[in-house]
Amino acid sequence: AALEPVETHPLQSRWALWFFKNMKSQPWQCNLRLVTTFNTVEDFWALHTHIQLASKLSSGCDYSIFKDGIEPMWEDSRNKRGGRWLITLSKQQRHSDLDALWLETLLCLIGEAFDEYSEEVCGAVINIRAKGDKIAIWTREAENREAVTYIGRVYKERLGLSSKVVIGYQAHADTATKSSSLTKNKFVV
């Protein structure tokens, strides 16, 4: 008997998963690979449950999830005027919090959690680094204060961060010209 077609739940956007592995012998662009794209809830979970947990990646690796067509780099025209809400984690949090925070970030993206400002979202990146992992949501226009701060407030709430914790938004233009420790926050929530 023929199987009934399974109903799927389409997402607002098609998303692309990118993987970066730091191999110093190759140019940076060669280390960044598009893994796959998806545009349904079901395909998101199929992908998520079949790839390595972020906490198990080796140092120097990144996962990026961006709207299809946007490359996960400052230079992309959809990113270059934007910035990122940055979450920096302690070394200990890789084991206790990292995977849950990354999953929550992904659910915010694919579920369009930022209401009318979800259109401002370009994607999200997780950096696995020995000195401390980072998660960020990238938005397309750093000067759009209303949208950026709305996204920041919702994101902080969704991550379950204490009101005492402050997270910052950095414009890519500032990040690109300064070392990370010196990049000033354009907004905080």
């Binding site: 739940h9 809830v41 998101f44 449950t49 929550e104 694919i110 579920g111 959690a113």
Partner: peptide
């Protein structure tokens, strides 16, 4: 129509898909 989903709805599909 904008397709938005809350977290509980999305999480509800996690193990259904994983078991397929």
């Amino acid at each position: 129509e904008k397709k938005s989903y809350d977290r509980e709805f999305l999480l509800g599909f996690q193990f259904i898909v994983a078991s397929m």
